[in-house]
C-alpha cells in the first residue's frame, strides 16, 4: 500500500500536496485508483472556478465505474492537468505524479484539518474490514 508520508489525505481518497507557494496540488490516491481499475476518462475543473469544501469538482471514470472527486478545502482552481485528461491511464501508473488540479486555498489553515498519512492508512485498513 502506497501512502507517501509527506502528503495530506481526505476520507474520500484524495491526496493533497502543500506547495512552497501555498497552493495545493490534488489527485486521487493509489488506493482509490486500485479500487476503480483502469482509468478511461477524466474531467478536471476549469481554472478560475471557486470551490467550497466537499464540492464535486472532477470526475474520474474507469472501465468499471464513474467516481466524483471532491474539493478537499475551499479555494480557487489555479490549474488543471490537461495531460491526465488525454492520458487517464497515468493515474493508474503513478497516482501521486498524475495530479488532477491545483487550488489556492481560501484559508491556508484549513489544510490542518486534512488526514495525515498514518490516519489515512488507518482509514483504508478499516474500510477493508
Amino acid at each position: 500500500m502506497s501512502i507517501p508520508a509527506d502528503l495530506k489525505y481526505t476520507p474520500s481518497h484524495e491526496w493533497v500536496r502543500v506547495e512552497a507557494d501555498g497552493t495545493l496540488t490534488i489527485g486521487i490516491t493509489h488506493h482509490a485508483q486500485d479500487l476503480l481499475g483502469d482509468m478511461v476518462f477524466i474531467e478536471t475543473p476549469a481554472a478560475g472556478r471557486t470551490l467550497v469544501k466537499g464540492e464535486e469538482c472532477a470526475v474520474v471514470e474507469s472501465v468499471k465505474a464513474a467516481s466524483d472527486v471532491y474539493a478537499p478545502v475551499a479555494g480557487e482552481v489555479v490549474a488543471a492537468n490537461a495531460e491526465v485528461e488525454s492520458s487517464p491511464e497515468a493515474v493508474n501508473q503513478d497516482a501521486y505524479a498524475a495530479w488532477l488540479f491545483k487550488i489556492k486555498p481560501a484559508n491556508p489553515a484549513d489544510v490542518s484539518e486534512l488526514l495525515d498519512a498514518a490516519a489515512y492508512q488507518k482509514l483504508v485498513e478499516s474500510e477493508a474490514h
Partner: peptide, 8 residues
Amino acid sequence: PVNYGSQI
C-alpha cells in the same frame, strides 16, 4: 475474479 491486474 473481476480482474487479475488490468482489465483492459
